[in-house]
Amino acid sequence: AAETLKIGWTTSDSPNDPYAIGAHAFAEALEEAAPGRFDIRFFPSRQLGDEKEMLEGLKFGVLDMAIITNAVIANVEPAFMVNDLPFLYADEDQAHHVLDGPVGQGLLARLEGDKIVGLGFMEGGFRHMINNVRPVSQPADVAGVKFRVMQNPVFISMFSALGGNAVPMAWGEVFTAVQQGTIDGLEIPVPVIAAAKYDEVTHYLSLTRHTYSAIALLMAQRTFKKLSDDDEAAIRTAASKAVDLQRSRVAAVQQALVSELESRGMAVNVVENTKPFRQAVTPVYDEFRDRIGAETMDAVLEATQ
């Protein structure tokens, strides 16, 4: 009989959502690699809890698979923080190169100790800044603007380093807070701007590419070990194929979404040169070096110089 695999993620099951795209790409690739062997059940929209719980759930073996944001994994394996360093990856290709290479695979391998099988890094797209004060094109533009940031020390330090005003705020309150002017803006990947209709309440979209959002396709070791060798191989093959598929679909979606947001009235500017930003955030790199581990850090820095 077909093996049931429950896969969870926290965003909606929409055709523009990187997590949903990833889950469906994996299902397609798996059906191709092992026709009829698996019955994949989708649990979008935080149905099985937030990412912290799903990650723990994989460890306890109460959930089969999940797509989890890098920053959340870093709370369990600090080395993952390296991916969230601001202005680290210059573009998608560079990120793919590092994440598919020894560094990325080394990170995923660390999860074995947590009883989790890391199948690969998909992408949520670069995170950018949106706000209602001014377009951001150089570090000084960030100063004095109240940006909501993810509750994550790297992001908080990054905005402090840029002289901005980082406001950690629960996601549920952010939309109204921007609308009412409680905060000026936030940092966010493009698909989320569209999905959550932030174009209705924020004016400037600055493509700052400040953080590459890696999202990991993970499986519970308990589920993985139950599988036959053939099925394990099928899962691995499907995962690597799904990663490629997901990345190219997300790229297409993003491009379309940026023009759509522009046509809906957002003022979009591209930050061509991110070097001054990277210079400004050097203290952040130093701050987290120890927690990330010198070896991982140096390997990534060398690959992204």
């Binding site: 809890g49 937030d50 912290k52 719980e53 723990e56 759930g57 306890f60 109460v62 629960a170 549920g172 309150e173």
Partner: peptide, 15 residues
């Protein structure tokens, strides 16, 4: 363990 985990998580909502 899901019981303990969910009882904590159910109250970890800022709103």
């Amino acid at each position: 363990v899901v019981l303990a985990q969910r009882m904590i998580a159910g109250t970890q909502t800022f709103s």
